[in-house]
Design a binder for these strands. Sequence first.
DNA 1: CTTCTGATAATTTTT
DNA 2: TTATCAGAAG
Length: 780
Amino acid sequence: MTDRPAKPQGLGAGPITSQLGARTPQYLDGLNPEQHDAIVSVDGPLLVLAGAGTGKTRVLTTRIAHILHTRRARAHEILAVTFTNKAAREMKERIGKFVGGAIEGMPWLGTFHSIGARILRRHAELVGLKSDFTILDTDDQIRLLKQLLQAENVDEKRWPARQLAHVIDGWKNKGLQPSQLSEADAGVFADGKAVKIYQQYQARLKVLNAADFGDLLLEGIRLFKENPTVLAEYHQRFKYMLVDEYQDTNVAQYLWLRLLAQTNEHRDTANVCVVGDDDQSIYGWRGAEVDNILRFEKDFPGAKVIRLERNYRSTSKILKAASHLIAHNEDRLGKTLQTDVGEEGEPIAVTSVWDSEEEARNIGEDIEQLQRQGHKLNSMAILVRASFQMREFEDRFITLGLNYRVIGGPRFYERKEIRDALAYLRIVTQPADDLAFERIVNVPKRGLGDATIRLLHDAARAANVPLVQATRELIETDELKPKQRSTLRGLLSQFDEWAMRLQTLPHSEVAEAILDESGYTQMWQNDKSADAPGRLENLKELIRSMEEFETLGGFLEHIALVMDRDSADADDAVSIMTLHAAKGLEFDTVFLPGWEEGLFPHQRALDEAGKSGLEEERRLAYVGITRARKRAKLSLAQNRRIHGLWQSAIPSRFLDELPADVVEVKDTGSSYGGINYGGRDQATKFDRRDPFESVYETPGWQRAQRQHKSRSFDRGPTIEGELVARSTNTASSSRYKVGDKVLHLKFGEGTVAAVDGNKLSIDFASVGRKKVLESFIQKP
DNA sequence: CTTCTGATAATTTTT
DNA sequence: TTATCAGAAG
């Protein structure tokens, strides 16, 4: 019996019942042919190329509903991976609607990391861990690496632990264990010691019974490779696999998936469906390989490819602008989005303003105006390239009394007080957790300083036991001074006491007691600083959220892996977030500020990844514009304060890449010059010049010239035929010397008082001494 | 051992 | 501009 409908459209079927095939299921109503095809093609490998706003999530969730409905597999036999918790949650909700609320049955729907952790815990002993291992976050990671660097006598100034963490993360993203690295891979870090320390780091993690984010996948790969029977178990379990945002997978994730999707004697076809959009790949810096999506057909021979190109979100003008922009990228599979909205809509507005303050003011006014016209704040969003841009908007909105909400700011669990509290919980449940112990031994202050800690460390290392164990032994000796000894003894007995209480009492209750009895709460109550009350509030919130979890372990897992922050969705508020955070969302009106060279495209992306970096930035721009349903409003500031210093900026090259006929340029009175579109007139491409001045004397031009010259000497990543403005110019020495008379755009005339590389101290006639960047001054 | 001070550095995106 | 860190003084 087949339930596959003959036609895409359903026949107005009634509610979904568990009876098979009686009618065309309702969930297949209202789909376009491609979507329908993507949903019902459940057997064999399938690649769905889903452009922005083409109903990707709908396809994914409906597909799962379809598999369930047709009884091809049961809920626990479907593996569905997403990148973010948000996406996972959304999918759960939507599937829940199809299936009628019984979502309990989708245990294998989640992020790569949460599913990786889940699998790893079941077989932890096979990779040298215990099933209750701790998941370390970046902070822990860095502190651990710091210790290892110290032990290796590496100069931390020159080779910061943070940087090493990046290097190691990079390896892990590529699926590389220390043993798979050769001398040649060591790179320059700390004179090639990186591999050695990576090895030590991994060993240390095992001792600590801990895994970092990368391990959740990397150790999973090792587990599957070394234990074919375990892998076979999952082969049997997962009848269908689905992957969201496939363009964002890194090598490790790819390997992990491929192991699970392997064909073998038990199955000759992999029912794996991946959904993605190469034009929305924006996580290359995190190790994502667009290649994965580009070579899917090779990996899975006979794979079916379906393109979703009908956009149900944006007006044709918005879509045209976005398509035109992204067409400048060379590395893409190529799609042609067509609008289904049937509305031309408003043109893309581009506003040039004097500085970032004015930008915030303008956008604030626009928002108020829209609000007066009856638009909800919830339907508007400001998407920035870098999080520091957010502050200006927040400031402005506070003075305006405009409701806003910041999405994806500092995560709840990254706050100091939360991490401290968690460390207490961790050390109680997990006595081997040295990192947690170190974090809280002297918080609040107990008179246990460096000297004492070092002693504990030495003892622990000598005996090769965790710190807590070493401490237990040390307090029985005279190694410690009496005062410290009794303090430590007291602390340890508290640990024991709390651990005991956890056996019988509810964990949230014990947690509260821990925070009180340790003096941690008191510490913040005594703190007179402005943010102390907020921190206490956060601690309360922490305890409250613990109540939702059955076990403490479950709660700790949630904290480690889930970035969920309760956002008060109920209020009407403008959203402020980064472009990265905006992926997958949509708004009627989208404000895109800061379209300036150096900020967007971001200088670092250009410096570090050259052309591919530029293309990724362009995809980011594409993502930004395609978030808009009805209105996209771009803006750029001619001056921006980067860190204390004013920098002048030139318009983003992306502005030149927009089709002139759907763009409407606005220029506020306070700026001079204008912007030029279409890029036909090269002389005015970076057009922000004083009308009385030659083009070739503008700072932007001069800077570009200088960069252009200096670049022929170093072989840093460059972009052919593009003039790349760099904000800093570390290599060359200054063109100026003390006593030179100079001219600065904002500060006017002045005299050079000191030269420090490319930074100059200048005494200005009008504003006194200021530090400025050489690139922003000129000879009068 | 703690606290204060001054200096210095660093500013993208995140599971 | 801001946060963080090291060093010196208490």
